[in-house]
Design a protein around this nucleic acid. Sequence first.
DNA 1: CGTTTTAAATTGATATATCAAATTTCAGAT
DNA 2: ATCTGAAATTTGATATATCAATTTAAAACG
Lengths: 225, 225
Amino acid sequence: MGIDNALLPVAPVFLKSLRDHVYGLVRDAILSGRLKSGEKLNERHLAGQLGISTTPLKEALRVLEAEGLVRSEPRRGIYVTFNAGQAEEMMLARAALESMISRQAAKRVKDEDVALMRELIVEMRAGLQTVDVLQLIALNERFHNVIHEASGCGYLRRLQGGQSIYTHTARLSVLSEERERFLAVEEHEAIANAIANRDPDLAERLMRDHVLRSGEKHLIRVSQA
Amino acid sequence: MGIDNALLPVAPVFLKSLRDHVYGLVRDAILSGRLKSGEKLNERHLAGQLGISTTPLKEALRVLEAEGLVRSEPRRGIYVTFNAGQAEEMMLARAALESMISRQAAKRVKDEDVALMRELIVEMRAGLQTVDVLQLIALNERFHNVIHEASGCGYLRRLQGGQSIYTHTARLSVLSEERERFLAVEEHEAIANAIANRDPDLAERLMRDHVLRSGEKHLIRVSQA
DNA sequence: CGTTTTAAATTGATATATCAAATTTCAGAT
DNA sequence: ATCTGAAATTTGATATATCAATTTAAAACG
C-alpha cells in the first residue's frame, strides 16, 4: 500500500515536456487523494516509478510547492499537504480572485463582450431543457472566459486558474442536479447584467457568492466520494 | 533538560538551500527592474554568473514561472514577464485575498485576538505622534498578522504573501507622508471594529478598499522611482 | 541580390554522478 | 534493558554530462 500503486509509469511517447506532464500526474494524484496528506515523496523512488530521472521531477515538485500542495523541508524530504481544509481555502481563493476579475470586467467591458455573454445565457437556458450536461459545462467555461477576457487581467486569470481542484467527473456530478443547473444559470444571468450595467460592486459580490455557493456544493460532493 | 534552551536554532540563512537563495536573488532583480520585462534568461549563462550549476537555478526558475514572473517557452527560452500592469494586478490579487482572509477572520475571531488588535491600534495612534516610521511598519505587519492568525486560513495567507512586490524602501517612502500614516491608522481601526463586531461583509469591504487605496499609492511611488 | 538548403552552434530538456545532511542501525557501556 | 555514539545507509541538494529542438550562419541555387 502507499505510493507504490499511486502512480503508473509515464508513456514515453507523444508528451509535451516531461516536467509539465509529471507535474500534472502528481497534482492529480494529490487532488484525487491517491497521494494522501502527510505522505512523504521520495524523489529517486518516484522518478524511478515514473520511468524518468529526478531532474524534471524536482522541477515539477518545486511548482507544486509554490502552489502549496507539497511542503519541502530542506535536506529532510517532501511531504504532501492537502486536505479538506485546504480544498475549502482554495475555493475561497477562487471566489476572491474571480470576483475581483468580475469587478475589473465591469469597469472595462465592451459592448461586444456584453452581447457575447447574453448569447451564452440564451444558450444556457436552452440547454436547461435538453439536459445536455457536457454542453452546459462547456457553456459555463465559455461564460467565465468572456468575463476573464473582458477584464484584461491576465495575471489574475492565471492565479485563479491555479485554484481549480475539481475534476471533470465532479462537475458532471454537480450539474446533474436540476436545481443546481437552474441556480447556475440564474446566477450567471445576474452577473452578466451587473457587468453589462457597469456595476463593479454588484458584479464582484454576485460572482463571489456564486463561486462560494457552487464551490461548497462541489466540496460536499467530493468529500462524499 | 536544562540545556534545551541553551542554544538557539541555527539561523535560517544557513539552512536555506541554494535554490531558495537564488530564487530570492532573481525575484528581487525582476521586481526591482534590474531584469527587465521581455529579457531572455540564459540558464547556463545565469548559472555561471551566479557561480552555481543549472540544477538549483532551473528549480528557482520553475517557482518564478509558477508565480507568473517569468514565462517559459518549451525548448526556446525563459523570458521575464513583469511590468506596471502586472504589478497592479498583483496588488488587486492581494486586495482580493486579504479581504477574503478578513471575511473569514470576522467569522472566527476570538476575544483575545480582538484585544490584541485593539492594543496594536493604540500603539499605532501613539506612533503617529513620535513619527517612528520603522515602528509603524512593524506595527502594521503585526496587525495584519493577527488577522491572518484569527482567520485560520494558512493557504490563503501563503497565497497572499506571494503577491507582495513592495520593498522596504517603498514602504518607508509611503509612510513618510503624514496623511498616509493617519489614513492607515483610521482604516486599520475601522477594519478592527468590523472584525470585532463579527461583520464579515464589512470587514471584507473595508480591507479591500484599504489594500486598494494604499496599494495605488505604492504603485505611484514605485513608478516614479 | 534574394531565396532556399543545409550545416554548425546554441541552449533548454533530460539523464547520470557526486556530495553532504539526516536518519537508521547496532555494538558497547552503564 | 536502556542509553550513547559511531558507522552504514538513505536521500535531498548540487554538479556535470548528454540529448535534441531551435536558432543562426553559411553555402548553394535560382
